[in-house]
Computed example of a mutant assay.
Amino acid sequence: MQGCDGSVLIDSTPNNPSEKEAGANKGTLRGFEIIDTAKAQLEARCPGMVSCADILAFAARDSVFLLKGPFWQILSGRRDSNISRVSDVNLPGPSFNFQQLTQSFAAKGLSQDEMITLSGAHTIGQSLCSFFINRLYSFNSTTAQDPSLDPVYAAKLKTLCSQNNPDPNAVVPLDPISPNDFDNSYFVNVLQGRALFTSDQALATDTAAIATVQGNSQNPSPWIVKFPQAMIKMSEIGVLTGQQGEIRKNCRVINSS
């Protein structure tokens, strides 16, 4: 992904697998039809004026707000990429350790504190079993179950994600406490060994990070203030403006198609 340019919305073609086909995206990104509906309504009222990239940025903000999270102002004017390649996807993986996470966010100009702040977004959303099932049955050569997982939580996950006959479409909420509320329970989960991904639990392996996690778990107010600021910064990464890119008529297809 090059940045906040709507490239992830483009469908694959026979000769060009798009970003949707990347392992980090395939099967986990959903709701494209909602973006399609918003785009169709905007095109009917003001054709060629609002980009798919802007729709995504505003949809992310509004989704957080509707789930009892903060609201923030976003600049518009992004344009859409006319390129989407599976090889361009370079997202933090669910098995990343703390150092890998820090380096991945730093490559996009985001600080370690902003990385921790944005990780709190995992208080909402879902995951396929395949992204964490190794923590339940084949963690490493000597340990089947990840010892950092809360045993009670691990047992529950095993009922949802079978080792012998896994359902490829089974999904698990990222937050077992309040999956439909944008709150600070993510940080509580990290402290209690109930973070779903290895990359989430990794926040408990760094001394400075865990101090921030503890603070966010006890008093969410500073995190609620910092989250919009980090989201605004992220929404301005790699944007296209002016005559760059295009404003797609259909978010799934570049105009020249």
Rank of each mutant, 00 (worst) to 15 (best):
Q2A: 07
Q2E: 05
G6L: 10
S7E: 10
S12P: 08
P14L: 12
N16H: 14
K20A: 04
E21N: 09
R30E: 14
R30K: 15
G31F: 13
E33P: 04
L42M: 13
L56I: 14
A57V: 08
S63L: 09
L66G: 03
L67N: 08
K68M: 12
G69W: 02
P70W: 04
F71A: 13
I74W: 01
L75P: 02
G77P: 07
G77V: 03
R79Q: 06
D88W: 05
P92E: 05
P92R: 06
P92C: 09
S95D: 15
S104D: 11
A107K: 12
K108N: 11
K108A: 14
S111A: 09
S119L: 13
I124D: 00
Q126F: 07
S127L: 03
S127D: 06
F131G: 01
F131R: 12
F132C: 07
I133L: 11
N134M: 08
L136N: 03
F139T: 03
N140C: 06
N140K: 10
L149F: 06
A154E: 03
C161R: 03
C161W: 02
N165M: 12
N169L: 14
A170N: 09
V171L: 11
V171I: 15
V172A: 08
L174H: 06
D175P: 04
P176M: 08
V190H: 01
V190M: 08
F197N: 04
Q201A: 15
A204R: 01
T205S: 15
D206S: 10
G215C: 08
P220D: 12
P222W: 11
W223F: 10
V225S: 13
K226C: 02
F227N: 03
A230P: 01
M231Y: 01
M234K: 08
I247H: 03
V253L: 14
V253K: 06
S257V: 10
